[in-house]
């Protein structure tokens, strides 16, 4: 790896992230008929459940260096810590241990990043744009462009809670790319759009890369990853399993998946669902 002259845009060094989960049950207690228990016992039981705390080690000892102009896919099963890692890289969740260095301003685009769902898309464009450092007048200038790109049309004046998940994802994608961020992080957002939007967003990601920015993409769609990414990081149970050229890593990852399981059928032999993390 003759990377001496490449300029790093992000360095992750031995990053651990531990979540403190409140009010979660440790294990499913034997379910008795609720009528059997007295009200008082039930109350106490409830109180005990609420008071439990759990530690979830979502990311364990992850290190890598990302360079300008790279687009890096992060793959892995549900609950493998991909999204948590991405949020830490974006600087919105602090690592419990380890350090992250970064060159420029990151923008995170996630499925759950509903800004304020009761408000109109228009208002959310202003909130998102200004939070990413644009001025009010810059947002106003780019407003039409953002709405055009998202392709949601007049729906932008409706509350975001009325959007379909595809519409919301498209608007968010349009917002976060409007500010041409130095580092763009995309969490599954491309999966929800239709074919036309996927094509346009792929082009947009390529454009952002050409501006010497770095793109991170978390996705369960290996075809999207192959299309967009030059490099792939594979996470499993919070650990970094592999880090290398897209084709090699994705191929290795696919070998661990149940054969030809295009539809998510529960028939797979050894696929134990990883415990849900706070992702």
């Amino acid at each position: 790896m003759a990377a001496a002259d490449r300029i790093p845009s992000l360095i992750a060094s031995h990053v651990d992230i531990t979540y403190q989960v409140h009010g979660a049950k440790k294990a499913a207690a034997p379910v008795a008929d609720p009528d059997d228990e007295s009200l008082l016992a039930g109350l106490f039981k409830k109180g005990r459940d609420l008071a439990t705390q759990q530690k979830v080690e979502a990311v364990k000892d992850v290190s890598f260096v990302a360079y300008h102009g790279e687009s890096i896919g992060i793959i892995g099963r549900n609950g493998s810590g991909k999204s948590t890692l991405l949020r830490a890289l974006a600087g919105v969740i602090p690592p419990t241990r380890g350090d992250i260095w970064i060159n420029g301003e990151p923008a995170l685009l996630g499925v759950n990043a509903v800004l304020m769902s009761k408000l109109s898309g228009e208002r959310n464009v202003y909130i998102g744009g200004q939070a990413m450092g644009l001025s009010r007048s810059q947002v106003r200038e780019r407003f039409d462009e953002i709405v055009d790109f998202s392709g949601i049309g007049q729906a932008v004046y409706r509350p975001m809670s009325t959007y379909s998940s595809g519409q919301a994802a498209r608007l968010r994608f349009a917002i976060s790319t409007a500010a041409s961020p130095d580092i763009l992080m995309i969490d599954e957002a491309l999966a929800t759009g239709d074919a036309d939007f996927r094509e346009r967003s792929t082009a947009k990601v390529a454009e952002i890369r050409e501006q010497a920015s770095t793109v991170f993409l978390v996705s369960h769609s290996n075809s999207t990853i192959r299309q967009i990414c030059s490099r792939v990081i594979w996470m499993d149970k919070g650990r970094l399993i592999a880090d290398g050229p897209t084709e090699e890593v994705v191929a290795a990852y696919e070998r661990t998946l149940p054969k030809k399981a295009a539809a998510p059928k529960p028939a797979a032999p050894a696929v134990q669902d990883a415990p849900p993390t706070g992702v």
Binding site: S13, G244, E248, A252
Partner: peptide, 12 residues
Amino acid sequence: MTPAPNGAPPAL
């Protein structure tokens, strides 16, 4: 340090 199947480059 992690003996990865595909060999992640050694961590700094």
